[in-house]
């Protein structure tokens, strides 16, 4: 069961490997270290300064894309152009905002010959922050109470429904803890300016944040799962360092969710463990998270497994991982040529 005899062309987005990084470069590291696949990596960038575009050891060729907010049509048009030059075998999107656009286009992508391994639109919608209370009821999972707001005036009534502090969250990204209405208003405006409406406000659950990275095969099986605790969180809410855990309840919860929802693709569960040792689900990210390389290092090369699933190969679930494996995130000043910046910013490819 190997695809080594052929070099695959794999397009990967989320190559913004900055201080709060996208998952692209960690995913690529997993693919580069695979002994089952050999890949030429196409970086999908949205901005001129996404580091991955300049990291030539990781990314063989980078292309700029229009944002998914420009619509499916212009997104596909650009992808067709890239595909005509590169013949993409597998596309791994790493931004939440791309998923909707790509799920809607899955049939077209398949016809083009581009394989993906994405959740279904129904799975994607169901786990949306705004739908989490229903999700919890449906699958018997403890979730944080939340409300969906479509205008700032709705905030005035939030006090009747939950107590401060509350967590103010964007449709795709950003989450801030607000201790009073005034703060909540500021965050509402800040997030909605960037990600649009609605805004989700969530009950703040006290406890320790723990996370699970997982990969589902779309038939209810968990191909891999690694639980982790962030050892320190940056002021942007991202992990500074983290360590893999041995935790049966987290693993059981993950398998329960995977089994019940038949999740297809990568996933990250954000959980809070309260003082009473309850696990609250606060968010499901519908993709592999930025700390995916920790799972690779702990023995589960999930990016590799995801590519093989996308190619339709039978993939055996990972049986184990190293407990106590740590990562510490660091930054590094890469030296770049102005010529390359010019190339990417004026021609859209590098």
């Amino acid at each position: 069961m190997t695809t080594l005899d052929k070099t695959l062309t794999i397009a990967v987005s989320g190559i913004n490997n900055i201080d709060s990084p996208g998952p692209g470069i960690p995913v690529i590291r997993g693919l580069r270290e695979s002994d089952k696949i050999r890949a030429r990596i196409i970086g999908i960038a949205y901005e001129n300064l996404e580091p991955g575009a300049y990291m030539h050891d990781h990314v063989d060729k980078a292309y700029k894309m229009p944002y998914p907010s420009d619509g499916v049509e212009s997104y596909l048009e650009r992808l067709r152009y890239i595909h005509s030059r590169e013949h993409i075998d597998v596309l791994i999107p790493n931004f939440d905002s791309e998923l909707f656009t790509l799920m809607k286009s899955e049939k077209i992508l398949t016809e083009m010959g581009i394989r993906t391994f994405l959740p279904t639109l129904a799975q994607f919608e169901e786990r949306h922050k705004a739908n989490l209370p229903d999700y919890g009821r449906k699958y018997g999972v403890l979730v944080a109470n939340s409300e969906t707001l479509t205008s700032i005036a709705d905030l005035n009534h939030i006090r009747e429904k939950m107590e401060f502090p509350i967590v103010v969250k964007g449709k795709f990204y950003d989450a801030y803890i607000a201790y009073d209405l005034e703060q909540a208003r500021i965050y509402f405006n800040r997030i909605s300016a960037k990600w649009g409406l609605p805004i989700v406000v969530q009950e703040f659950i006290r406890g320790t944040e723990v996370n699970v990275i997982a990969l589902g095969d779309g038939r209810g099986n968990t191909i891999g799962a690694v639980p982790m605790r962030k050892q320190y969180i940056t002021d942007k809410g991202k992990a500074w360092g983290g360590i893999t855990l041995a935790d049966d309840t987290m693993m059981e919860l993950t398998q329960k969710i995977m089994h019940a929802t038949k999740w297809r693709g990568g996933m990250e569960l954000e959980l809070i463990r309260t003082k009473k040792d309850e696990l609250y689900l606060i968010e499901i990210n519908p993709r592999l998270p930025a700390w995916v390389y920790l799972a690779v290092a702990a023995g589960q090369n999930l990016p590799e497994a995801l590519v093989r699933l996308a190619l339709g190969e039978a993939v055996q679930p990972f049986a184990r991982y190293d407990v106590g494996k740590m990562f510490i995130r660091y930054s590094y000043d890469m030296i770049c040529e102005l010529r390359e910046f010019e190339q990417l910013s004026t021609h859209g490819e590098l």
Partner: peptide, 14 residues
């Protein structure tokens, strides 16, 4: 001016 900031509202101009 080329926007060098991250992230601006626009990716590849459409």
């Amino acid at each position: 001016r080329i926007n060098a900031g991250l992230p601006s509202k626009y990716g590849l101009p459409r």
